[in-house]
Design a binder for these strands. Structure first.
Lengths: 351, 351
DNA sequence: CTTGCTTTTGACACCGGTGTCTTTTACAGC
DNA sequence: GCTGTAAAAGACACCGGTGTCAAAAGCAAG
């Protein structure tokens, strides 16, 4: 109240107040706001001045109505890893901090058969200028098609390029997994187990490829009894651990496709009295909070999720501001993941 | 495209289309949409019919402009526990699923000295009908005052009532902590340690009170050397563990004010070869994913965060729909927490 | 100084709803 | 059947911006 200075009493100044003060039409003010090119420097200055003195901020609802588009970018996710989602959100917010945009979040229920209808309703109602699709929902091609149909720009986040690069942000997971597994091999591990993520997930497939690449490189191969498939949840990690570790000569190292499953395998090892990393080295993926909370702290792969959020949001903002606007400095949509070494990996015991 | 039936070609039907089809004025349609009472059953039916056949959905932007209020509820949080935040979000979405409302999320930076300015800008821009404040930011009285000033309804989430009950949703943490610690005592523990949360947090204070209540009840007290203060982060749990467990006769049980710190204490115990729960029982708080991912699985207190989200959102929706609307079935804003027993607690070894 | 063209600016309708006030309708009472 | 009153419906301005198109201004050429 005290600090506000405006034409009408006690309310936010509107475009009319600005126009009156600057002695121009409201349309001219609108042009200044929207950075129209057909305006002389002199009038622009005058209008800017009026905007400043009034402390005018355009009403987003009115703009949304007139533009037929909300100044919102939507985050659609069905990711089971909350840390990841929140980190991504953080990156997005970093990117839109100084723009007029806001973020709206929409968790989606992957299982639902009304998924596309729900999304259609949501997008038609909110009319965001763009949407970001987090994995695994980012792999849904029908959803991407729906965005196209509704004129909603979108960016798909994934561990591999899913689409035309303009629509993607991803990381080089395959390479980094290969690097991590390579380190196990360098340490002397020969019997290396693998716990895969859920079938049909591109992220799981990429990690699997990276694993096999490293093995192939060293002339090794994966024995069936050292393989288990999970669904990224802790419980399936436990199952995988039970299967792989109850053999007479279990592997000396296991690569797990995410941290939660790695934690499951480690808890089985503890139960069985198998020492980690003395008897068994473990590597996870995600660098979730779990990775540092368990004992021993888990060696894992961190993917640059926050940066990906920034990048995705920036892409949308740039496309929105100008069709031809250039996207930040680096122009590759592939951001680097990194292997993080902690205490769950060691050289195999001599036997 | 194919499935849409409306007056004008290819676009969403508007209130005018509905009015034309029903043979009434747009204002009458508006009355039906907003459940005005001054309308005959007959015309209401006719309008409803028209709405159905056209598949009309009111444009939220237009309503927002006319109402001078966005159909949004904002979630403001600075909580370090992402699982909690997402669970809360989920509850909120459950609650607003069938309403016209959407959720907008805004993480806030507690440290920032521009916090109130940022929030003012955010709220003035977005004009949500209400805001939900998650702890610890929910304890900020200035923020609550700001909401009042801007006419934004709000609900504060907390472990104790912070305010007039109309503005709060909370849980009975103190009692449940007392219950949990009581169980330790019943098992025979006498030297029980305590790791407190950050000073100045009401949640930390409530848990501390519950702890002392249980001890007092049994005629016990907390020795200084069995106490440590942390800030809810894993690292401070490690520090606490180092301090408390390096004594010649450490406690046989420790209550930690959250799971992360409990995980830290447990990792120190592992390092020192102290068996959990054989030599040392541990209880945490939050039932975060960490609780089940560590070994042994952590006994902890689960607070009904998703339910609290539902409840908070429902409160806002109800207030919004009608000032006098009744809030759901149960009318207490205190939801029950529960003690969850897992593998980190056992009777103390005889010594 | 005109003319003719391009660049700036403005008038006015419009986006799709709601608020206010007026007019019409419905119905009870005489 | 007529009047009076309350309930229902409508007309029209308005919320705060943008789009369209016409008018005004600026400027080079004739």
């Amino acid at each position: 109240m005290a600090t506000r200075t405006n034409g009408k009493s006690g309310k936010q100044p509107t475009i009319n107040d600005v126009a009156a003060l600057a002695g121009v039409s409201k349309k001219t003010v609108s042009r200044v706001i929207n950075r129209s090119e057909f305006i002389t420097e002199k009038t622009r200055k005058a209008v800017q001045q009026a905007i400043e003195t009034l402390g005018f901020v355009p009403n987003p609802q009115a703009r949304a109505l007139a533009f037929r588009r909300n100044f919102l970018i939507a985050l659609l996710h069905d990711n089971p890893n909350p840390q990841m989602v929140l980190n991504f959100q953080q990156g997005v917010l970093d990117a839109i901090k100084d723009s007029d945009l806001a973020m709206i979040v929409r968790p989606v229920d992957r299982g639902s058969d009304r998924l596309l209808d729900d999304m259609r309703t949501f997008l038609e109602k909110q009319r965001p200028i763009g949407a970001m699709l987090l994995p695994p929902i980012s792999e849904n091609d029908e959803l991407a098609a729906l965005c196209d149909e509704l004129g909603v720009r979108y960016v798909r986040i994934g561990s591999a390029l899913l689409d035309d690069a303009r629509h993607c942000v991803s990381s080089n997971d395959r390479e980094v997994v290969a690097e991590a597994v390579g380190k196990l091999i360098d340490l002397g591990h020969r019997r290396i187990g693998f716990v895969r993520g859920p079938a049909g997930f591109r992220s799981a497939a990429e990690r699997e490829k990276g694993f096999h690449e490293a093995l192939a490189q060293a002339g090794l191969s994966l024995a069936d009894e050292n393989f288990a498939a999970g669904n990224y949840r802790f419980a399936t990690g436990v199952e995988a651990g039970r299967k792989i570790l109850s053999q007479p000569a279990p592997p000396t190292a296991i690569f797990c496709s995410n941290d939660e499953m790695a934690a499951g395998v480690i808890s089985v090892a503890h139960d069985k009295g198998i020492r980690v990393p003395g008897d068994l080295s473990i590597i996870g993926f995600d660098d979730s909070p779990t990775a540092t909370h368990i004992w021993p702290a888990l060696s894992t792969v961190r993917w640059p999720i926050r940066e990906m959020g920034m990048r995705a949001a920036r892409t949308l903002v740039a496309e929105f501001l100008g069709p031809e606007a250039k996207i930040a400095e680096s122009d590759s949509p592939v951001l680097p993941s990194t292997f993080i070494e902690r205490q769950s990996v060691a050289a195999p015991a001599r036997n």
